[in-house]
């Protein structure tokens, strides 16, 4: 029961200190959007992100635009006398093959990278969705109901976090043989990600729960469900959105790492990590083959990270820690 002092925050601008260009009646969301739009880094990374998403969504048509399907061999594009080296400079980049071809097989890299984007982003997004949904549900339940629910859920979070996740994922993926790889990868990656979200949400819920406006809702006669959906959930959504955006690059990296190690999606389905794994052997003879999927992976991770950073700055200035 501390008494906040008037005059305690001399530098805090008094109310009404919103920039003049903000129309009255702007919701916190509108203000956040306005703030985001002012940042050039946000605009650039958002463009890159949208480009990748678009690429993944339209992969079949976009890939067809180059005239090759991802699994189609083109023996004419490689030199059979030079151990299957692509013909032409820069890994066989030509009007025919926009990003060159794979050595030996002559498969079109553009088609493979575009289809790889689809697989990589699908897994990353699906895993993120699982993580965010379970994490938010568990976090809110633990934070709001407290007591025994909190004890059980918190233990479960600690336990899950004690698992050596990468090693465990590799192990699980390697023992499961005849299952849909994409579904399996999504669920395995999702399994180890939720405690992070849950902790952030739990902390946020705990602090919201003790806000006076939640008390006010209770005094007004609102039940638990009404308070959860109208007061708590909108309150945690800001940090969750920021955290989600920062989660995606991690998911993309994890998928790539698993596929790189050969326990992810199986050939001939392309994914970035798996393409890089195949190209490592050629890094000296055909560097473009190695560089192209790496650059795509790098750009995707970078753009999502930058976007997430900006979102976190604005939606969750104190870092979501309790």
């Amino acid at each position: 029961m501390t008494t906040t002092a008037p005059g305690a925050a001399p530098e805090a601008a008094p109310a009404g200190a919103q920039a003049k260009d903000v129309p009255p009646g702007s919701s916190p969301w509108q203000l956040a959007r306005r703030e985001l739009r002012r940042r050039p880094a946000v605009r650039v990374s958002l463009c890159v992100v949208l480009l990748f998403v678009l690429m993944a969504l339209t992969a079949p048509w976009l890939g067809a635009l180059g005239g090759w399907s991802p699994e189609e061999f083109d023996k004419a594009a490689v030199d059979p006398y030079l151990a299957g080296q692509p013909l032409g400079s820069f890994g066989g980049i030509s009007p025919e093959h926009w990003l060159g071809v794979e050595p030996v097989t002559g498969r079109d890299l553009f088609a493979r990278v575009v289809h790889g984007a689809q697989v990589s982003l699908l897994i990353a997004f699906a895993a993120t969705a699982i993580v965010v949904l379970t994490g938010t549900a568990a976090g809110i339940a633990a934070g709001y109901f407290g007591g025994r629910t909190d004890a059980v859920l918190s233990r479960l979070m600690d336990l899950t976090m004690s698992f050596p996740s990468l090693i465990f994922m590799i192990a699980m993926l390697s023992v499961a043989k005849d299952v849909n790889r994409i579904v399996l990868m999504t669920s395995v990656i999702g399994l180890f990600g939720w405690p992070g979200v849950a902790r952030v949400v739990r902390g946020q819920t705990l602090s919201l729960k003790h806000r006076e406006y939640v008390d006010a809702a209770r005094v007004g006669g609102s039940g638990a469900w009404r308070i959860l959906t109208r007061d708590i959930l909108p309150g945690v959504s800001g940090p969750v959105i920021a955290y989600t955006t920062l989660l995606i690059p991690g998911m993309i990296s994890t998928e790539a790492a698993l596929s790189y190690l050969g326990v992810g999606v199986r050939p001939p389905t392309p994914s970035w990590g798996q393409m890089i794994a195949e190209s490592v052997a050629f890094y000296e003879t055909d560097p473009m083959y190695f560089v192209i999927p790496s650059v795509f992976l790098f750009l995707a991770v970078l753009a999502f990270t930058l976007l997430g950073d900006a979102l976190r700055d604005i939606l969750d200035p104190r870092g979501g820690r309790s």
């Binding site: 008494t3 009646g25 919701s27 006076e212 406006y213 008390d215 006010a216 006669g221 909108p234 309150g235």
Partner: peptide, 25 residues
């Protein structure tokens, strides 16, 4: 059972801003 009674007893809080949900009009 308290809900009807709620009407008769209400509360005003200390911190005017923290007692209003920032996301509601």
């Amino acid at each position: 059972a308290l809900r009807p009674l709620r009407r008769n007893i209400q509360m005003v809080f200390q911190d005017p801003h923290s007692s209003l949900n920032p996301r509601q009009t």
